Simulated assay, not measured.
Amino acid sequence: MDQEIENTRTDCWLEKIEDPEMELGCTKLVMEIEATITYPARYSEEEEDGDDEDYSDINQILAQDSNSYEDTLELNFLMDDNNGTAPTRFMMEQISSKLFDLNVPFRDHESIADKILNDVFAVARDPSRKADGKILCMRAVIHAFGEELGDEDMDIDPKFVPASKSALEKLERAIVVQVSTMCSVCREELVAGSEATRMPCLHLYHESCIVEWLGKSKYCPLCRYSMPSD
């Protein structure tokens, strides 16, 4: 019987609601995030030593090699014109950026961000909590299943594997909204309000910098997100 491994599990809960010292004009989220990443382990030939034992139980072939990380996310809620509380792209990007800091696999960012925002907005919409203009202090605990690079990936030197031309053409443009954002290629500042080029992993760069970089390496300079190659 095949066994499936759940990649992620995210639990969120409200710890308290605080009154701000000064009027905020919006509801603010302060969330403590703890992420535990568990990585698989493969048996080497020496470890197996020719043993024909059936490792059908996934718990027998996966080592409990886990690393935990913790950080704080601060986020202002962005409401739409219809007074809805649907997650916006900006908030998704902010959460994804924090998940990168916590070493959460990129493939799980969207589902985790959806879970976090849905739970946060459920709290904010609850009239009994009267959270408008307050500070929501919440906590999220994430359990993610990481992926180790295979032997072929480990043998590849990224500088000899450029991204495909079609992948470069699909790069998006974005307006820099955060101050002190730096292009990790040239190490110079991306000026707030200016246009930058955004990779699928949401990291921003000067267009000329990232195009030149991806012409040599398909990997994001910051997180090693892999772009398609020919």
Rank of each mutant, 00 (worst) to 15 (best):
E207C: 06
P200Y: 11
H143E: 04
I5L: 12
F90N: 04
M91F: 03
M199H: 05
C223M: 10
E148C: 10
T72I: 15
V30D: 04
L214D: 05
D157S: 12
T181M: 09
L202T: 09
C209D: 09
F106N: 11
D155Y: 09
D108G: 07
C183F: 06
A35V: 13
K98P: 14
L29M: 09
I210W: 01
L171T: 04
E147H: 04
V161G: 00
R89M: 12
D81H: 10
D80V: 08
V123R: 02
D2K: 10
S194P: 01
L75I: 08
M199E: 02
A196F: 04
L204F: 01
E110N: 09
K134C: 10
A144Q: 00
L214T: 11
S97L: 13
V123K: 04
N67F: 10
D101Q: 05
S194G: 06
T181I: 04
E48I: 15
E15D: 14
N59S: 13
I116N: 01
E172W: 05
L73A: 06
D71E: 14
H203K: 11
Y69M: 12
D151M: 14
C220W: 11
Q60T: 15
R42K: 13
G25W: 08
Q60S: 13
D101S: 11
L24C: 11
P221D: 00
L136A: 04
H206Q: 09
D81N: 12
G84L: 05
L136Y: 03
K216T: 12
P162E: 01
A86G: 07
Y55S: 08
A140P: 01
A122Q: 08
I95G: 04
K115H: 08
D101T: 00
Q64R: 06
D19T: 11
D101Y: 03
V141A: 07
E47L: 13
E21A: 10
K165H: 08
C220D: 07
R89E: 15
L168A: 05
L190H: 02
I5Q: 04
K216E: 05
I142C: 01
K28R: 14
I17S: 02
R224V: 07
A163I: 09
K134R: 14
S164E: 08
A131F: 00
I58C: 02
L214Q: 03
A163H: 05
P105W: 00
A196G: 06
M138H: 02
S184W: 00
L78V: 15
C137G: 02
P162W: 02
A167P: 13
D119W: 01
E46Q: 14
L62A: 10
C223N: 07
D2G: 05
K130W: 03
I156G: 00
L78E: 11
S194M: 08
V191E: 14
D126Q: 06
E48S: 10
T8W: 03
A86E: 15
A131H: 05
Q178C: 12
S68Y: 04
P200A: 13
L202Y: 03
V30A: 02
L149G: 02
F160G: 12
Y55M: 13
E46P: 14
F100K: 10
Y69S: 12
T197F: 01
A192H: 09
P87Q: 10
C12T: 15
L73H: 07
Q64H: 07
S44M: 07
E195D: 09
P200I: 10
G150Q: 07
T38E: 09
T85Q: 07
P40S: 11
E18Y: 00
V30W: 02
L24Y: 06
